[in-house]
Simulated scan of single mutants.
Amino acid sequence: MRKVLLGVGLAVLATGCKQPKTETASAPVESNAPRIYVTNEVSGDLTVIDSGTDQVIATVPLGKRPRGIHASPDGKTIYVALSGSPIAGPDVDESTLPPPDKNADGIGVFDVAQNKMVRIIKGGSDPENFDVSKDGTQLYISNEDAEEVSVVDTATGAVVNSVKVGAQPEGVKVMPDGKLVWVTSEETGTIAVLDPVAGKILKTFKIGHRPRSVAFLPDGSKAYVNAENDGTVVLADAKKNTVIKPIEIGKPGVIKPMAVLLSPDATRLYVSTGRGHKVFTIDTATNTVTNSVEVGARPWGIALSPDARTLYSANGPSNDISVVDLATNTVTRKIKAGSSPWGVLVLPR
């Protein structure tokens, strides 16, 4: 009996001495679906999402206040506007804010293949948004506090020209033929038309209250520009540089149009509305609102999947991205991002 008990005791002891198996968290399985890139203004990083699984696969530090985000024409490089100026609303007394950190101003250069930021180039003072020239050799950057648009050489990273525009410039958009660039100025409610070759503003015209974003029809004949404080999107003649008509989206102050984005076939215009919590759809044949979908708190940046079947919206206060099925006009999922997502970019693998 003692031998039996001793044997059992030794077996138990031996079993107890075995090292327990360590459970390791496996990395999310990645698909070959397009990647969603989200700039997070407060947390200062980039959220990378696999659109095939709707899983966050990376969070990459960028710098202070990443906002505007655009890709090079070949899709191999992502540029991000970084700013050391403190965050402030439109009615904040700037004298009460801490001084800006000008060393943090610049354009982050993110290598898509390496999935990391490789350098920061100059972008003028307080870069907010920008666009890329058709050949990828230049960036046209809105410098909010300096009331300028800067032209940057992407190869050298040097600012080759700076031109004065209206107060609080934000939205920048290259025309489809690549020859001219429109720059919105929030405070003055104007569009400045830049000729980058001549290095000067050809014309400035009124567009509405607090314009931030521009979308051109593919033939360059017309443009849609948001007028945030009017609750409208303005249809403009892009050849004559004049207003054709405002398109009412909703009650001013409640519905605040922010970003405008055309479908690839230009038959639909999508409009994010900030405090309005919705993304609206405009039929460009009739220039009327056809529907809307509630996506979340203060949607700002929006982007489309390459097949144009899905829309993604950056919802700042709730720190997430809404996934909208455009066939059913419903939110199918929300994906957590960093703190205060601002801009969204989608690139195929």
Rank of each mutant, 00 (worst) to 15 (best):
G89P: 08
P348V: 13
S339C: 11
P257L: 14
P66Q: 09
P28R: 13
S221W: 10
A113I: 09
V293I: 00
E228W: 13
E94R: 15
V80R: 05
D111V: 03
K21H: 13
G301I: 00
F205T: 02
L269G: 01
K239N: 08
G274S: 14
P61G: 05
G276Y: 15
N143G: 10
L217H: 02
V260T: 05
T330E: 15
K164F: 02
P127D: 12
I207N: 06
R275I: 11
P169I: 02
L10Y: 04
G123M: 06
T184P: 03
H209K: 11
E228I: 11
T47E: 13
D105F: 02
K206T: 11
G343C: 13
K334V: 09
V243R: 03
S162F: 03
A104V: 09
S221I: 15
S43L: 04
P127G: 01
A259D: 14
P98N: 06
K102Q: 07
I107H: 07
A155R: 01
S72R: 01
D93W: 06
T96Y: 14
G338E: 13
V279N: 03
G108R: 04
S322A: 09
G253Y: 11
H70A: 05
I57V: 10
G16L: 14
L6M: 14
T281W: 10
S83H: 08
R333S: 13
F280V: 02
